[in-house]
């Protein structure tokens, strides 16, 4: 599918944005539901709308339409996590005040998170872009369906019309790519595993 050039989006072309809304919505709502389903599933759509609003505000800094899925997924993931933390703060009765600029930016630090979760939107976007450039879309799907959705390799092979051998090879190579990108981005290679990069 041909997506509109970034210049049309930056100029606020409604037709171009309609195409992009259709294209990006499934990606954003998927990740929003992934994060919010355990605690606030009904907020998933609102979070995505807010994420799109952030995307509109950053669109002049984006160089290519192909990067938009990575950027929107990164923004949505961080908005959703931030939303969960706010709900958690409400349950605690506003015992902790949060600076206004943090609320407006919707970027909250967390004390209980993995190195991946602690990535700021720009860092996460960068990681997803690196993965997009090296990991074929179909391989990403194979890995997700196998490890997260729990399908067998045979199921996946039949679904995509390829051999089980192809699926296995793709999963193995894909895992290596993901692990390398993750390591480069968030995990130090010194003696202490999982030390976060300075931000």
């Amino acid at each position: 599918m041909n997506y509109p050039p970034i210049e049309r989006l930056q100029s606020g072309d409604s037709e171009a944005w309609d195409i992009v809304f259709e294209w990006l919505w499934p990606k954003a709502i998927y990740i929003s539901r992934q994060v919010l389903t355990p605690l606030a599933p009904s907020d998933a759509e609102d979070v995505v709308i807010e994420a799109f609003t952030s995307l509109f505000e950053r669109i002049h800094k984006v160089y290519s339409t192909e990067s938009l899925p990575s950027l929107l997924v990164a923004i949505t993931r961080n908005h959703a996590r931030s939303h969960l933390r706010k709900l958690s703060a409400i349950k605690r009765g506003y015992s902790k005040t949060i600076p206004m600029n943090i609320v407006l930016e919707e970027q909250l630090p967390s004390q209980e998170e993995t190195p991946l979760e602690s990535l700021a939107t720009e860092e996460l976007f960068d990681l997803l872009e690196q993965i997009r450039l090296e990991l074929p879309e179909r391989t990403a799907r194979y890995i997700h369906e196998y490890y997260i959705e729990g399908l067998t390799r045979r199921d996946i092979a039949e679904c995509y019309g390829v051999s089980v051998h192809t699926v296995s090879g793709n999963i193995r190579r894909g895992l290596r790519v993901l692990r390398e990108k993750l390591k480069y981005k968030v995990i130090c290679t010194d003696d202490l595993p999982f030390r976060m990069r300075n931000r």
Partner: peptide
């Protein structure tokens, strides 16, 4: 973290 990045990569597709 690897599981997390698998979900994010899949979300973009």
């Amino acid at each position: 973290a690897l599981r997390g990045v698998i979900c994010l990569a899949a979300a973009t597709t």
